[in-house]
């Protein structure tokens, strides 16, 4: 049997805490996952579930006073947690790049996008202005930007949302990162443009050999893009596994309920959607046992004393729920969405 490949990024028991009212609050608790070479991994969850905090912690970008990050995150064997800020800065924009929901956060309004991408390239490589611009124009073209030489001469606000997003991805790719962390990169875009950007992200594995950690709240985006998926709930892992397995046989009641609450585009239209009652708890008001307990249809006594540990379900799937260990796994999804009308 071949040995498992060494993952590009290997995150174990990542915790992020911030001080509030005299005590430390865990925004992210024991998150573990890995990203392999040329793989797209999805990090899904509702707002406030800790997706962005996880990503920012990996990049050393949480600067709130008193923040504590513990656990381990190895990128090509190098430990990122506790790495000197300078070394981290070199890694960012080099081997690891990040893109955001709002491209305006990546660009300064007062310079043309071409100038900004040139500068990014020149910060990491000795290149003449002219050579850098040639690379910029080529990158923009690869990202599907029409008329890239002219587009490079425009200011961020002169571009449409879709073009700005492409320009930001071009800038992120300018230093040939092996890992791209994309935080809700298509959330602000229309579906037809979103489909183009997702297609672009899927292509990066082949065109640039890059891996992507894709952060999203949209189960549809995950299904169409990611080979493996991690579901976060209230700062903790609810479930992780191969995307196809997760969608066909979710092992955590939260994953199952979340999938069921999405209205179907085809097939029978339910009279009422199977909604999940209530709202996710904030980190401050997270209950003692399973964080999903108060909203879970299967909650029982063993769920309440302590957060259920991650149990291995098989074939790379794990769920933080007591049901599988008690021999009462969830049934496969009955309401899987019909493919076609």
């Amino acid at each position: 049997m071949p040995a498992d490949p060494v993952p590009l990024l290997d995150v174990r028991d990542l915790c992020v805490s911030v001080p509030a009212n005299g005590s430390m609050i865990r925004l992210v608790e024991n998150v573990s996952f890995c990203v392999n070479e040329a793989e797209i991994v999805g990090l899904v969850g509702e707002s406030g579930s800790g997706k962005s905090v996880t990503a920012m912690a990996l990049m050393g970008l949480i600067d709130s006073p008193g923040v504590q990050v513990s656990g381990s995150a190895r990128f090509r064997g190098q430990e990122l947690v506790g790495m000197a800020p300078r070394a981290l800065r070199n890694l960012r924009g080099g081997d690891i790049a990040m893109i955001f929901q709002d491209p305006m956060t990546a660009f300064t309004p007062v310079y043309t996008i071409g100038w900004q991408i040139d500068e990014q390239i020149r910060a990491h490589e000795r290149l003449s202005r002219r050579a850098a611009r040639a690379r910029t124009v080529q990158l923009l073209a690869e990202m599907g930007v029409p008329d890239p030489a002219r587009t490079a001469q425009r200011y961020p606000h002169q571009l449409s949302g879709g073009l700005r997003q492409r320009a930001m991805i071009a800038m992120a790719l300018s230093c040939n990162p092996t890992l791209l962390i994309a935080d809700e990169p298509t959330t602000a875009l229309d579906v037809t443009v979103q489909a183009q950007i997702l297609d672009l992200l899927r292509g990066l594995r082949h065109s640039h050999g890059s891996s992507v950690l894709l952060i999203t709240h949209d189960m549809g985006v995950v299904a169409q893009t990611c080979s493996r998926t991690l579901v976060l709930y209230s700062g903790r892992m609810a479930e992780s596994g191969p995307t196809a397995t997760l969608f066909a046989r979710p092992a955590h009641p939260y994953t199952a309920a979340l999938l069921d609450s999405i209205p179907p585009l085809y097939g029978t239209r339910p009279h009422r959607l199977p909604a999940i009652a209530g709202v996710p708890p904030t980190p401050q008001e997270r209950p003692a046992g399973c964080a999903f307990g108060p909203r879970c249809a299967y909650v029982h006594a063993t769920c309440l004393p302590a957060p259920p540990p991650l149990a291995s379900i098989g074939a790379g799937q794990q769920a933080a729920c007591v049901l599988p260990t008690e021999g009462k796994p969830l049934p496969p999804r009955a309401t899987a969405q019909a493919m076609q009308p």
Partner: peptide, 24 residues
């Protein structure tokens, strides 16, 4: 048709979206 095809369906193995060129 393009709008519907572009909706990312929450299921693995859905046919890939037919991509429209450009923005509105």
């Amino acid at each position: 048709a393009a709008l519907i095809a572009a909706v990312p369906r929450p299921m693995v193995g859905a046919p890939p979206a037919m991509l429209l060129r450009g923005d509105v």
